[in-house]
Deep mutational scan, measured.
Amino acid sequence: MGFKLLSKLLVYLTASIMAIASPLAFSVDSSGEYPTVSEIPVGEVRLYQIADGVWSHIATQSFDGAVYPSNGLIVRDGDELLLIDTAWGAKNTAALLAEIEKQIGLPVTRAVSTHFHDDRVGGVDVLRAAGVATYASPSTRRLAEVEGNEIPTHSLEGLSSSGDAVRFGPVELFYPGAAHSTDNLIVYVPSASVLYGGCAIYELSRTSAGNVADADLAEWPTSIERIQQHYPEAQFVIPGHGLPGGLDLLKHTTNVVKAHTNRSVVE
């Protein structure tokens, strides 16, 4: 069995187990497998329904001669939608809004960016022009300005110390501490036991640490421990890039980060 097929099978099995364990909360999309990078042309966006009122959005972007996937989250909030992270750029984010209108038909009224990198804030200006209120932590807003990236308009308070959590509509926002970046936030959907790890969490097929220019490698494993301790009931975990899975993604990420750190020390 090929690795790609095995990865998709694991996603399907995880979703099936969740649907059985929580039949009222989960209505997993039966329309197909989780979209992969090879299936999404740059400039297009796919939506994948995880649970009743919960979707991931998947886009792709060219970077350094390669094409990478990027995940975000959409959560229903009454007759409105909360968006977590842009679709990595203005063109993708405009396509995301169009796809949401086509498939869901509810307005996106608020959006949260989970850290300051372009795959999370690139497209904020498109959201703002569409009347979406954009939010991020003060740290993310400051770092985005320093980096020359787009800056969300509103500040999220109460997320300055490791372990801080605040309720934001249908989700809980959690600051686990520094990891992929010093400002990275985690998003949890309690009604569906869905954990969105953003770039602080890796997919299972990833074996290298990737972009760690703004990471705190020493603190990252401790931050992941905080996530595990705060959300032990999480059933569906979405990484910032690639295929979702279960809580095993947290341990896998820790292993990859520690291996990278150990290699760096040896070198």
Rank of each mutant, 00 (worst) to 15 (best):
V146N: 12
L83E: 00
D85E: 03
Q61D: 05
E233V: 12
D216P: 02
P35Q: 15
N71F: 00
E225D: 14
A129D: 13
L143T: 04
G65V: 07
S160A: 14
D248M: 10
Y175I: 01
P69Q: 14
Y135G: 01
A136F: 04
S181C: 02
A66R: 10
W220L: 02
V37H: 15
R120W: 01
R110K: 12
L24E: 12
L5E: 11
S139A: 13
N149H: 13
S56R: 15
V124S: 07
T60W: 15
E80G: 09
L156T: 04
G148I: 04
I151E: 05
I238Y: 03
A209K: 10
A19L: 15
S181T: 15
K8M: 14
Q103T: 14
V171H: 02
A136L: 03
G65A: 09
L13W: 09
L173T: 03
A95V: 11
D183W: 00
P232V: 09
G2R: 10
H252D: 02
V265R: 11
Y12R: 09
G53K: 11
Q61E: 04
L13M: 14
L195M: 07
P239D: 01
K91S: 15
V187M: 05
H57W: 00
F236P: 01
V126A: 07
S205T: 09
L106D: 07
E172S: 05
H260S: 12
A213I: 12
A215Y: 04
I186C: 01
K102Q: 10
I151G: 04
S205L: 09
H57N: 03
G53W: 06
A179D: 03
E233T: 11
D85G: 01
L24D: 15
A98Q: 13
G240V: 04
M18E: 13
T153P: 05
V124N: 05
H180R: 04
L243D: 15
A98S: 12
L185A: 03
A94E: 14
P221G: 09
L204M: 13
V171Q: 02
Q103E: 14
T86L: 01
G163L: 07
G72P: 03
E150H: 05
P232K: 14
W220G: 01
E203T: 06
P138F: 07
V266L: 13
V11N: 09
R110S: 13
I186R: 02
D85W: 00
A21R: 08
G177C: 04
W55V: 02
D119P: 00
F3C: 06
G177F: 01
P244H: 09
S264T: 11
L81E: 02
N92T: 05
R263G: 14
